[in-house]
Amino acid sequence: MADSQQSWGVHALGGTISVPAWKTRPSWYLVSADDRTIPPPGRRAMAQRAGATIREVAGSHAIYISNPKAVAAVIEEAAAHTRLKQAQ
């Protein structure tokens, strides 16, 4: 897993964002029900605050390893929603 993650530079701390994407675009959040790193209630609260469509599945903090099919399903759902919106 560590090999797939990118390090970030300290310059990232100085970045500015005028309008966060989650305020203007639809978002999805996959809650890992068995997460012991960030408790599910905290994850749900973050997702609700962002107005995200929330999906919850069994799996650990590293959900893309413990339940990759659920991750793919949420990505496909978001993509289908986006395609539908663009067609309208």
Score class of each variant (00 low, 15 high):
Ala2Arg: 07
Ala2Asp: 09
Asp3Met: 11
Gln6Ala: 12
Ser7Ile: 08
Ser7Gln: 12
Ser7Phe: 08
Trp8Asn: 00
Gly9Ser: 15
Gly9Ile: 01
Gly9Asn: 13
Gly9Met: 02
His11Glu: 15
His11Tyr: 09
Leu13Trp: 10
Gly15Gln: 14
Gly15Val: 11
Thr16Gly: 08
Thr16Asp: 08
Thr16Val: 10
Thr16Arg: 09
Ile17Tyr: 06
Ile17Gly: 00
Ser18Gly: 03
Val19His: 13
Pro20Ser: 03
Pro20Asn: 09
Pro20Met: 05
Trp22Phe: 15
Pro26Asp: 13
Ser27Asp: 04
Ser27Met: 05
Tyr29Met: 06
Ser32Thr: 00
Ala33Phe: 02
Thr37Pro: 01
Thr37Asp: 00
Thr37Trp: 01
Thr37Phe: 01
Thr37Gln: 05
Ile38Asn: 02
Pro40Cys: 09
Pro40Asn: 10
Gly42Asn: 13
Gly42Phe: 03
Arg43Asn: 06
Arg43Tyr: 01
Arg44Leu: 07
Ala45Pro: 04
Met46Ser: 13
Ala47Pro: 04
Ala47Glu: 06
Ala50Trp: 05
Gly51Trp: 11
Ala52Val: 08
Glu56Ile: 00
Val57Gln: 06
Ala58Phe: 05
Ala58Glu: 12
Gly59Phe: 03
His61Pro: 06
His61Asn: 01
His61Gln: 00
His61Tyr: 05
Tyr64Gly: 01
Tyr64Ala: 10
Ile65Phe: 15
Ser66Gly: 07
Ser66Leu: 02
Ser66Val: 08
Asn67Gln: 07
Asn67Phe: 00
Lys69His: 12
Ala70Leu: 13
Val71Asn: 04
Ala72His: 04
Ala73Asn: 04
Ala73Asp: 15
Val74Gln: 04
Val74His: 07
Glu76Trp: 06
Glu76Cys: 11
Glu76Thr: 07
Glu76Ser: 14
Glu76Gly: 09
Glu77Ser: 15
Glu77Gly: 12
Ala79Leu: 14
Ala80Cys: 00
Ala80Leu: 05
Ala80Thr: 10
His81Asp: 04
Thr82Gln: 07
Thr82Leu: 13
Arg83Asp: 02
Arg83Glu: 11
Arg83His: 08
Lys85Ala: 15
Gln86Asp: 09
Gln86Thr: 11
Ala87Leu: 14
Gln88Met: 13
